[in-house]
Design a protein around this nucleic acid. Sequence first.
RNA 1: GCAGAUGUGGCGGAACUGGUAGACGCACAGGACUUAAAAUCCUGCGGACGAAUAAUCCGUGCCGGUUCGAUUCCGGCCAUCUGCACCA
Length: 816
Amino acid sequence: MEYSKSIDKKWQKKWKEEGLYKYNPNGKGKKFYTLEMFSYPSGAKLHLGHWFNYGPSDSYARFKKMQGYNVFHPMGFDAFGLPAENYAIKTGIHPEDSTLKNIETMKMQLDEMGGSYDWDYSVQTCMPDYYKWTQWLFLQLYKAGLAYKKEAPVNWCDSCKTVLANEQVINGKCERCGTVVERKKLAQWFFKITDYAEELLEGLKDLDWPESTKKVQVNWIGKSEGTEVTFKGENGDFEFDVFTTRVDTINGVTYVVIAPESELVQKITTNEQKQAVEDYIKETAKLNEIDRLSTERPKTGVATGAYVINPVNGDKIPVWIADYVLEDYGTGAVMAVPAHDTRDYAFAQKYNLPIKRVINSKDGEETELPFIEKGVLVDSGKYNGLTSEEAKIKITEDLSKMGEGKKSINYRLKDWLVSRQRYWGAPIPIIYCDKCGIVPVPEKDLPVLLPYDVEFKPDGESPLKKSREFINCTCPTCGGHATREADTLDTFVCSSWYELRYPDARNDKQAFNKDTINKMAPIDTYIGGKEHAAMHLIYVRFMAKVLRDLGYLDFDEPFKKLVHQGMILGPDGNKMSKSKGNTVSPEEYIEKYGSDVFRMYLMFGFDYRQGGPWDENGIDSIVRYFSRIERLIETVIPYKDKNSNNSVGSKEKELLRVKNQTIKAMGQDINDFGFNTAIARSMELLNKLTDYMRDNDNINEKVLLDTVTTYIKLLAPLAPHFSEEQWEKLGNKESVHKETWPEINEDEMNGGTKEIPIQVNGKLKLCVTVDADSTPDEILKAIKENDKVKELIETNNIKKEIYVPGKIYNLVVDKK
RNA sequence: GCAGAUGUGGCGGAACUGGUAGACGCACAGGACUUAAAAUCCUGCGGACGAAUAAUCCGUGCCGGUUCGAUUCCGGCCAUCUGCACCA
């Protein structure tokens, strides 16, 4: 193989000089905005996962460009985040320094990959010219009443005196020092994404997204329809609501449970139970949410000593607290029906609470308990005999009339907590004034700059709190002394709108120009990992809907089509990780073989959507393939000067037929991210070409050169450097990347012959060769004239014959 | 536990809406070229029984069903992976 990294360099330099990948917003063709999820500059170098995501996606973008679209294919960096800060704590290297350095390296490497990016349209979320607008966005949400502050628990390590992210909590303990992590309440900012729950759910229907991803979002939003029921204290001194989807079982309620964090707990707990309740709350605070909700753990709880009245039948029932009830789901309180709920059943047995059956199976039988299916009501007073479905409606109606309940829709989706007690993020643009209270930073004062000189080592205070110059300010309203919000924004906020910034990335007057973005967006194809199915992909959709409501966008679904690339695992079949020691670095392969060999292998050796364990053995297949192409080009070049006027015979027709079929198949495959089959088709065309040259003394130069030219064009998006080199060898002066995708010649494609399978009882017996352009009737005639088919018909007792026109011929015979 | 995905040769993987299972490669084996090796080219390559051919049978995780015909559709299992986490 002649091709190597130096050929990559040669063309990269030339492309850059020519400005080949400069984006022209007014360029020819329909706009096509294709985007890969940007990456976090975690390490200095691109890893295999980056190559697997960005290489094929780049080929897709190049293909779309050849198809005549005006392709916009930007790339940027999601640059704020925890790892850079942790790295800084460990090494003392400032997050800004390490991040910017990583970005420079990664950009260089993306160019080395052959990425067709225009860096003039790049974003880096940690730069003030970007996060100024992230802060602006926060202010818009604040003004619209969609950003609010409330208390919420954080993971607190009392030894490190710091807030921990979920991923820093290992088995309930701090990853650094092993101290048991507590849950501590802090006042934090939220975005009211729940306002959009219904719309986020509805909007999914029309999206060209993988069904499995839509399902993840549906489950994440978790809509459930049920009833809210009010339970009043036995003395009428308090009341609370519970949400239930099974109000038909309300007569079987034998206790109710409220979340330990509920404010009500203090109010209703009796003196006798006070100590037990307080102890229990303390225990609960030690658990993180995952442990708390774990099915493995036995259910625990404690009685408050208070009683409420069942509004339907007047029963007096005890109020318990238990950690399996979450304060922020539903109303933070549940009614327990042990006879008809597995969890309640186990709890009731453990604490000797009564179990009352109120549902029998649909045919009226008493089943074993717990019976969690729907059925027919018993022991439920006037509701006896109703089915669960009927009872739900009737009981809800009755409760409504009494003013003690109502139909209710509940979502699992929670409001989006955006405060982070971190340094390396966008400061939240809020000022606290003693006199005026919460004051948003005026837009003209944006950005609120993240100070460079800050002590970010954890010692109990948010890093920004320790920066006097940052924290102290004057109130924009009254001019008095005030302090800034010391928390920064969740990085998901930065990435919730970046796709809107790209087309107008250097705009210093606005986050984006309204007209520009409405022309460029929505994104036609969005490519990224499945792991973002819930969070990122919901947040971006949410933000688009907010910006639509605020009048900035004419659309509200940012990504029309979504594609997930698979994951390349370590050679051992496990996820690559440094701790497992199974990481594979692309570097050495690139050095040895060049970028295109590696790109091609990643596309050819794996299913793009599937991924799989890394195996370097297949790389040789591409090396060999490239060598064969190089030899082909060498042998073809002399034919340029020959002019032997050979005719177009059956061999030429066959070659042209395959050529056209290849154009068609590769186009479909690349469009569908089927890179492995696209490359396989290209190999078939090469096989055809070499066969033609080997088996033929009378080569038709015109057909040959036309096919070879087409062939190189077909390879151009997949192997950009290599193809450019071959293209030049063929004597072309302009870049192959300015060429258009070859057109299909239907006449040429449909020539030749094809084989029709002949079956007996569905089993293949033989094939009959017919002209490919014959009509179905002619084909049937040809089949029946075939000697072997005649024999089959004569020697068998034919019960039925099935002919799928032009496709298959099947005889159904009696078995003797 | 719930949800989703996957299961096809020694391996990576093909097979459009039910219509020639194993495309294209890797690996392997045999042959040609070579003093030899590498490279290259040619041939073979799911299994069984055959003699190298022909014919036949089995074969897409397992069991069953629908169909002229099932990798594809239906029912029931098994295994692996991923995500979510008692969602009331």
